[in-house]
Lab assay of single mutants.
Amino acid sequence: EFTQISGYVNAFGSQRGSVLTVKVENDEGWTLVEEDFDRADYGSDPEFVAEVSSYLKRNGGIKDLTKVL
């Protein structure tokens, strides 16, 4: 089950073990991109978060400006 990723309007994530599946949706709710990120592939949590965040930004993730990150 996908849940909204904090700080984004149209990005959602689903966690299974160490694998986080993220997706970005358009205004109609269609999935634009979907990608798996395995936490085990990264040396640290900040590196993992930075990679996921960068992916979302590159692929149309819209920041939720009503929330302070």
Rank of each mutant, 00 (worst) to 15 (best):
E1T: 13
F2I: 05
F2V: 05
F2H: 05
F2Q: 04
T3K: 14
T3I: 11
T3A: 09
T3F: 14
T3Y: 14
Q4F: 09
Q4V: 12
Q4C: 15
Q4Y: 08
Q4E: 06
I5S: 04
I5V: 05
I5N: 04
I5T: 03
S6P: 14
S6L: 10
S6R: 11
S6I: 10
S6N: 13
G7E: 05
G7L: 06
G7N: 06
Y8W: 14
Y8P: 06
Y8N: 06
Y8G: 08
Y8L: 05
Y8H: 07
V9K: 08
V9R: 07
V9W: 06
V9Y: 08
N10H: 07
N10G: 02
N10K: 03
A11T: 02
A11V: 12
A11F: 03
A11H: 00
F12W: 12
F12D: 02
F12C: 09
F12L: 04
F12P: 01
G13F: 13
G13L: 08
G13H: 08
G13M: 14
S14G: 01
S14C: 15
S14R: 14
S14N: 07
S14L: 14
S14F: 12
Q15T: 11
Q15L: 14
Q15A: 08
Q15I: 13
Q15G: 07
R16G: 03
R16W: 07
R16F: 08
R16M: 07
R16S: 09
R16K: 11
R16D: 05
G17H: 03
G17V: 03
G17K: 02
G17A: 03
G17I: 03
S18C: 12
S18H: 06
S18R: 05
S18Q: 07
V19Q: 03
V19E: 01
V19Y: 01
V19A: 01
V19S: 02
V19P: 00
L20M: 04
L20V: 06
L20P: 00
L20S: 01
L20W: 10
T21L: 04
T21V: 07
T21C: 07
T21D: 01
T21R: 08
V22E: 00
V22R: 00
V22I: 10
V22M: 01
K23W: 13
K23E: 01
K23S: 06
K23F: 05
K23M: 06
V24D: 01
V24I: 13
V24Y: 01
V24H: 00
V24T: 01
V24M: 02
E25H: 10
E25K: 14
E25F: 13
E25D: 05
E25A: 12
E25Q: 12
E25C: 15
N26Q: 04
N26T: 12
N26S: 11
N26H: 08
D27W: 08
D27I: 10
D27Y: 08
D27Q: 11
D27H: 12
E28Y: 11
E28G: 08
E28T: 09
E28M: 12
E28F: 10
E28R: 09
E28S: 11
G29L: 04
G29R: 05
G29V: 04
G29Q: 04
G29W: 03
W30N: 11
W30K: 15
W30Y: 13
W30A: 13
T31V: 14
T31I: 13
T31W: 05
T31H: 04
T31M: 06
T31S: 06
T31N: 05
L32N: 04
L32Y: 07
L32G: 05
V33Y: 09
V33W: 13
V33E: 04
E34N: 05
E34C: 15
E34V: 13
E34K: 11
E35F: 11
E35Y: 12
D36H: 12
D36Y: 10
D36Q: 15
D36F: 09
F37D: 01
F37C: 03
F37L: 03
F37E: 00
D38E: 03
D38T: 02
R39K: 04
R39A: 03
R39W: 05
R39P: 02
R39G: 00
R39Y: 06
A40L: 11
A40M: 10
D41W: 08
D41S: 09
D41E: 07
D41C: 13
D41K: 10
D41G: 06
Y42C: 04
Y42M: 02
Y42L: 01
Y42P: 01
Y42Q: 01
Y42N: 00
G43M: 12
G43E: 11
G43Q: 10
G43R: 09
S44A: 03
S44W: 03
S44K: 01
S44G: 06
S44P: 02
S44Y: 02
D45W: 15
D45C: 15
D45K: 04
D45V: 08
P46L: 15
P46G: 13
P46M: 15
P46V: 14
P46S: 14
P46T: 13
E47S: 04
E47T: 03
E47I: 06
E47R: 02
F48Y: 06
F48K: 00
F48T: 00
F48S: 00
F48D: 01
F48N: 01
V49T: 10
V49N: 10
A50M: 11
A50E: 10
A50T: 08
A50L: 09
A50V: 06
E51G: 07
E51V: 13
E51C: 13
E51H: 12
V52N: 01
V52W: 09
V52I: 12
V52T: 01
V52H: 00
V52R: 00
S53P: 00
S53H: 14
S53L: 12
S53C: 15
S53T: 13
S53W: 09
S54N: 13
S54F: 09
S54Q: 11
S54T: 09
S54D: 14
Y55R: 01
Y55C: 05
Y55N: 01
Y55P: 01
Y55Q: 01
Y55D: 01
Y55F: 14
Y55W: 15
L56M: 02
L56D: 02
L56G: 00
L56V: 09
L56S: 00
K57Y: 10
K57V: 10
K57C: 15
K57H: 11
K57F: 10
R58V: 11
R58S: 09
R58H: 09
R58F: 08
N59A: 07
N59P: 02
N59G: 03
N59C: 13
G60N: 04
G60T: 03
G60F: 08
G60L: 04
G60Q: 02
G61L: 11
G61F: 05
G61H: 02
G61T: 06
G61N: 03
I62W: 05
I62E: 05
I62H: 07
I62T: 05
K63N: 06
K63F: 14
K63A: 11
K63D: 07
D64W: 07
D64S: 07
D64K: 04
D64A: 07
D64G: 06
D64L: 07
D64I: 07
L65K: 09
L65T: 12
L65S: 13
T66L: 14
T66R: 06
T66H: 12
T66W: 10
T66A: 08
K67M: 15
K67I: 15
K67L: 15
K67N: 15
V68F: 12
V68Q: 10
V68R: 05
V68I: 10
V68A: 09
V68C: 15
V68L: 11
V68T: 10
V68K: 08
L69F: 10
L69S: 15
L69W: 08
L69R: 03
L69Y: 10
